[in-house]
Design a protein around this nucleic acid. Structure first.
Lengths: 208, 208
DNA sequence: TGGTCTCTCCACCTTTTGGCTGATACGGCC
DNA sequence: GGCCGTATCAGCCAAAAGGTGGAGAGACCA
């Protein structure tokens, strides 16, 4: 039996200690480090070079989870990263997978599911919670709905209530281009107004 | 020294075990029961009659936290309930306080803050995380921001992406009246466009 | 090399929204 | 009886948003 070393990344103390206690019940899993931000995660991973990094995407301040995953994967591709978060938003899942995450667990996952994901990750298997898998499946089935990076960027600003003019200023593009992007976004989201787009975006992507 | 018994209610296993471990470090605090839903919380509270119930508002299925608080308070007014959740939405805070919560902690609260809240709650003191307190304060200080029933109704429909014309049809009023209401809503929310109003409404009221 | 995708921009036109001023009516409240 | 808050409606005008159709540049890929 080989021992699997794990680094936990979450800005909530109670979540970390809970996970640590949970993983501690398994003889082959050992938590070798903890971090509460993306930056700390990079340091901890470099220091302990764990087999698996369990990471929350939402971090209070500093580098976010997605960026941390990218950097971790870049520095050590053999290290597996599993996302461990509360929400199963479409955008997060796609971004996390793009960034190189090996698994995607929701925080209400059963203990066995978590253990299986950690063990599977070191063998190159990717494990994800059922709701996550079904969302990913939908994304693949409906490629129309996938926004380009630029469109996603625009949509994100849109949910802050900006006008076309302001969007243009913020993104250093003309108002005409903003309108073009918006028209594409509306088509992909299946809505007709910016209001509906905002409502859809906030509700479905778990933006807050 | 008197021992304070606590029941934990949260649908996330790791959060419960984390909290349990955390509270276990204090000699005067003991976790006597756990529950993962509103219904279970009522059973656990009846069975163990704890001094304090620490409860997450968001429960995956069944009775939600607010309803559970109401019922707990009704059955045993001496029992203190502390909300322990991830978000500080205005609506949740007000509803929780209305339901009879003694405290309102965010999950990223420092351990000392959590201990203090539990100890304070049994003495009738209410403790809340700083961001929560400031939000409550704002609510009280800005009564202007309270929408009339009709305005709230309109805002709710607005978040579905309806146009002024559609809003009028849906509420059996003229478009002119819709515009009047909207102008009032914008003023109260401190925004200038319908887009910003929608974003504000969805984010702050936790509509989804 | 040709096709496709993405991002950028433009002009023209219609519809929608928002700002402003004003009005009527109903119900509490002091 | 006046005052205030709420809900209803109107017209006018400027600004913003949305629809249509087109186009060029750069990246990537077969």
């Amino acid at each position: 039996m080989t021992t699997i070393s794990v680094v936990l990344v979450d800005d909530h103390t109670v979540v970390r200690s809970g996970l640590k206690a949970l993983l501690g019940t398994q003889a082959d899993l050992v938590v070798v480090g903890e971090a509460s931000s993306g930056e700390e995660a990079l340091v901890a991973a470099a220091q302990h070079s764990p087999g698996v990094v369990l990471m929350d995407l939402a971090m209070g301040a500093g580098m976010d989870g997605i960026e941390a995953i990218k950097q971790l994967r870049q520095r050590n591709p053999k290290q597996a990263v599993i996302v461990f978060t509360t929400y199963d938003s479409d955008a997060d899942i796609v971004r996390a997978v793009d960034a190189g995450a090996m698994g995607y667990l929701l925080k209400d996952a059963a203990p066995e599911e978590i253990f299986a994901a950690v063990r599977g990750a070191v063998q190159g298997k990717s494990v994800m919670s059922a709701p996550v898998a079904s969302r990913l499946f939908q994304q693949l089935r409906n490629p129309d709905e996938i926004l380009t990076p630029r469109e996603a960027e625009l949509l994100s600003l849109l949910t802050e209530g900006l006008s076309n003019r302001d969007l243009g200023k913020r993104l250093f593009i003309s108002e005409a281009t903003v309108k073009t992007h918006l028209a594409h976004i509306y088509a992909k989201l299946g809505v007709e107004t910016r209001a509906a787009a905002i409502a859809t975006a906030i509700r479905r992507e778990g933006m807050r």
